[in-house]
Amino acid sequence: MNILMSIITVIYYLLVAYTAVILIYNLIKTKTWEKEALYIIVLLPFLLRLFRLK
C-alpha cells in the first residue's frame, strides 16, 4: 500500500510538472492579454504544489 502510494505520488508530481510546463508554453505562445492573465492564475496552484507549499 505504501509503495503504491509512493509511486502514485511520483506520477502525480510528474503530471503537475508537465501541466505547469504546458501552461508556461501556452502563456508564451498566446497573443491575448486575457489568456495570459488566465494562464498565470491557473499556473499558480500548480507551482505551489510543485514546490510543496501547502
Binding site: L27, I28, W33, E36, A37, I40, I41, L43, L44
Partner: peptide
C-alpha cells in the same frame, strides 16, 4: 513586455 509584467505579477 506585457507577458513579463503579468508573469512578474503572478
Amino acid at each position: 513586455i506585457r507577458k513579463i509584467i503579468l508573469s512578474v505579477l503572478g
